[in-house]
């Protein structure tokens, strides 16, 4: 399947990636080629075939409802690019 520059821009917005015009152009070509290769899958008849989401069958694992974590706020905010005391600071969010 071919992909258009407009589609590339739409996908880039969904993925929150700012692209330069050169990147947009390159991706249009690259992704087009790769998708063309992927389109070969359509040659296969998969009617009645179950999709595989998990390759190994595992019993539903769960844990008991117990609080195991003690507050460690300072260590957890140590990597924050911007903070205000114990809160993460971000540009103003508009509802």
């Amino acid at each position: 399947m071919k992909i258009s520059v407009e589609q590339i821009r739409h996908v880039a917005l969904l993925a929150r990636l700012a692209l330069t015009p050169a990147e947009e152009e390159e991706l249009t070509t690259n992704l087009g080629q790769i998708l063309q290769h992927m389109d070969k899958l359509n040659q296969l008849d998969t009617s009645g075939v179950e999709p595989t989401a998990h390759i190994v069958a595992v019993d539903t694992p769960w844990r008991e409802d117990v609080v195991t974590n003690a507050p460690d706020t300072d260590a957890l905010l140590a990597n924050a690019p911007a903070r205000d005391d114990d809160l993460f600071l971000v540009p103003k969010i508009i509802d």
């Binding site: 409802d65 609080v67 974590n69 114990d86």
Partner: peptide
């Protein structure tokens, strides 16, 4: 008592980011 996918407290009203991991 705890969150859905981790062992943090699910209680309401703690100081900011105290119930995180």
């Amino acid at each position: 008592a705890s969150k859905i996918f981790c062992g943090c407290s699910a209680a309401f009203g703690a100081p900011p980011n105290q119930h995180t991991c």
